[in-house]
């Protein structure tokens, strides 16, 4: 029941006549440390933490440890509530939730890394935006997390989800691929379509560098989570419409990893390049650390 690549997973789905989430769930029960009930309870707990972190800053905004972010979710929500949003309901809600999770994270609140803390806003943003718009129950959202986890595990095995190793494309890019595949499955797409969406999402972010100002998970991380969420939704929409990625998922994964390995050290989470190395980025660092 285990798989190392997208092709192996898609083949398993066909052979067993199951969805990605069902294969991933069975795999966890067979090879993991927990039984079926424990696996279900653990995922429900993760979903609960995600939900809380995506919504809490709407009631009370939170200032980050470094002081660079806080209050973004409320600003977006206010504009949405006034009917002014130019992005439509699903995308605007996804933006709001993505900002909220990063606010919680940056103020030492509890989040679920998905696959990392810096990219923790993308998956919840997409699934809760769809849940509110299409009235999707929590059980189905749990399925979506298994699907997202399946895609993430393939990326961890064959490439990387670490900004220090392969740049932001490996963090936000991977999170977007996970969320895109989950969104496709939630909206009734096939396993093949899930991986088309995941491939498109990674391709859209190829080369993105990891350049956190002052080395903190605040900026540009927070707005990149919004970019990751919108990338996931657009990639899912394209795949559901029958559009295929020019490059298949496995090759796109390799490409992402190779690009990541070629990124200079300055652009892999060391805070020595990109946004972090701009005059304003350096000034912010001085202000925070003295």
């Amino acid at each position: 029941m285990d798989f190392n690549t997208a092709q192996e997973l898609i083949a398993l789905c066909k052979k067993e006549d199951k969805k990605i989430c069902e294969i991933m769930r069975l795999r966890e029960i067979v090879y993991g440390e927990s039984n079926a009930d424990e696996v279900e309870a653990k995922m429900m707990k993760s979903l609960g933490i995600m939900k809380e972190s995506a919504h809490a800053p709407l009631k009370k905004s939170m200032k980050s440890m470094g002081g660079m972010i806080g209050g973004e979710a409320q600003k977006l929500e206010q504009r949405r509530a006034e009917g002014k949003s130019i992005c439509g309901n699903v995308l605007t809600k996804a933006l709001i939730f993505s900002q909220a999770v990063l606010e919680v994270n940056a103020s030492m609140g509890v989040i679920v890394a998905a696959p990392t803390a810096g990219s923790a806003g993308v998956v919840p943003a997409v699934i809760f935006a769809l849940a509110e718009e299409f009235d999707i129950p929590d059980e189905k959202l749990c399925d979506a997390l298994f699907t997202a986890g399946a895609v993430g595990s393939i990326l961890m095995k064959n490439a990387s989800v670490s900004g220090a190793e392969a740049g932001c494309q490996a963090e936000i890019g991977s999170a977007a691929a996970m969320a895109a595949a989950a969104a496709v499955e939630l909206m009734g797409g096939t396993p093949e379509q899930s991986f088309e969406a995941a491939a498109i999402a990674i391709g859209n972010m190829l080369g993105l560098v990891c350049d956190p100002i002052a080395g903190l998970v605040e900026a540009p991380c927070q707005s990149r989570n919004a970019a990751g969420a919108s990338n996931a939704l657009t990639s899912a929409e394209m795949a559901l419409a029958g559009i295929k990625s020019a490059i298949p998922f496995n090759e796109m994964t390799d490409a992402m990893y190779r690009v990541g390995k070629k990124l200079p050290m300055e652009l892999r989470e060391t805070a020595l390049g990109g946004c972090a190395a701009t005059p304003t980025g350096c000034a912010l660092k001085c202000r925070i650390f003295g």
Binding site: M24, S46, A106, A117, K157
Partner: peptide, 24 residues
């Protein structure tokens, strides 16, 4: 290849802001 649990991808559940610098 070593088994990767779904909870290593969707997880850990953690106090922010950094999986390496805070949770680790």
């Amino acid at each position: 290849m070593a088994f990767i649990s779904v909870f290593e991808v969707i997880g850990p559940n953690m106090v922010g802001p950094s999986s390496s610098h805070t949770a680790g």
